[in-house]
């Protein structure tokens, strides 16, 4: 599990078992639209599922 700071929050992403990462090292994460959930920013209510 690798944690990065993004979008004003701490975001965790699954990492492979053999993934070697150091703190501070830049990484990229694949977050396709189909796994994302959208919520209203103010009320927190679910908008859609894509």
């Amino acid at each position: 599990m690798a944690t990065v700071q993004a979008g004003g929050a701490l975001v965790a992403v699954k990492a492979a078992k053999d993934f070697q990462g150091r703190i501070g090292q830049p990484i990229a994460a694949h977050v396709p639209a189909r796994i994302c959930h959208l919520f209203d920013a103010r009320t927190g209510v679910r908008l859609t599922r894509t």
Binding site: V4, L10, G21, R22, P26, A28, H30
Partner: peptide
């Protein structure tokens, strides 16, 4: 490459 690109904050 991916939709998020940022330095590692912590590893668990």
């Amino acid at each position: 490459t991916g939709e998020i690109a940022a330095p590692i904050y912590a590893m668990e």
